[in-house]
Design a protein around this nucleic acid. Structure first.
Length: 266
DNA sequence: TTGTGTTTTATTGCCTCC
DNA sequence: GGAGGCAATAAAACACAA
């Protein structure tokens, strides 16, 4: 409970508005008659401790007062001294009350703005997280494709040579790749080149029929046409995948940004 | 009716600017 | 140094569920 000295209390007490039941009266006239009498008594130094206790309860501003203050705030949310005094006179408030109301109103506005900003930021973060998850899935799919390809190559090199059917398939593939290169159809953009069907039923080598298979056959295998396959470690793809992972770690799914600067309690 | 959470009004203390 | 702004906080008023 606040304690007023008689001089301090005067300002505070003067700022008190009439009680709720007098609201209608207040809407057009400011303080009620009864309240004015009380203020008069205070001004006349008739201020006992009991009186100050009874009067020190604060009252809310009337609807009309708030409306006018809001209207003024919309025009300009800062108060020059002249405007403050004028507004106070119009609304039958103390200039200090008007100043306090504007201060509190600016605080509310700021809070609201912060909430809006946070909401926008959160939406943007959620979208980014979704993108990251999708990329992660794509990466997993490519990794498993790569693994299968390697296994297949190992198996084939163990067998020593290929069946006529395999040779024919590879030859056909090479021709196809060369044609597409001539027409600029292949590797024209990264997304097309690395796109692998991630919903392939068993992740089988069917889905390898694009870029990765192309690269294997087009670069390493054809260099020694007469010889059996000499599979080399596929450094390019591995490097590519590692760098993807590194990029993903920037915004790791496992450790998503906490926005602790925004929510210190997190 | 009462307990509890939210909103509004007001104070305090610190900082900046003139 | 005084005026005014802001952040933090207190406390009254209010809303609302149980």
């Amino acid at each position: 409970m606040q304690q007023f000295s008689s001089s301090d209390s005067l300002d505070a007490l003067i700022s008190i508005c009439p009680p709720k039941e007098k609201k209608d009266e207040l809407n057009t006239h400011g303080y009620s008659e009864e309240f004015r009498v009380m203020l008069d008594r205070i001004n006349g130094e008739d201020l006992s401790y009991e009186t100050s206790q009874a009067l020190e309860k604060r009252r809310r501003l009337s609807l009309y007062q708030v409306k006018e203050l809001e209207r003024s705030f919309e025009v300009e949310n800062r108060l020059e001294p002249e405007r403050k005094v004028k507004l106070a006179e119009e609304l039958e408030l103390q200039p200090r009350q008007v100043a306090i109301w504007f201060q509190n109103r600016r605080t509310r506005l700021k809070t609201k703005q912060l909430q809006r900003d946070f909401s926008l930021l959160k939406d943007s973060y959620d979208a980014l997280k979704l993108d990251c998850n999708n990329l992660e899935q794509e990466k997993e799919s490519l990794s498993s494709t790569l693994r299968e390809l390697k296994e297949k190559l190992c198996r084939q090199s163990g067998e020593g040579n290929h069946s006529v059917e395999e040779e024919s398939l590879i030859s056909e593939f090479d021709t196809n790749v060369s044609d597409r290169r001539k027409t600029g159809d292949l590797f024209e953009n990264g997304e097309k080149a690395v796109r692998v069907s991630s919903d392939s039923k068993d992740g089988s080598s069917d889905c390898i029929s694009n870029s990765l298979a192309d690269r294997f056959r087009d670069s390493e295998f054809r260099e020694v046409p007469g010889k059996a396959y000499q599979p080399q470690p596929t450094r390019m793809e591995e490097q590519s995948l590692f760098s993807t992972e590194e990029s993903c770690n920037f915004f790791s799914v496992d450790q998503a940004p906490t926005l602790h600067w925004y929510f210190p309690e997190q």
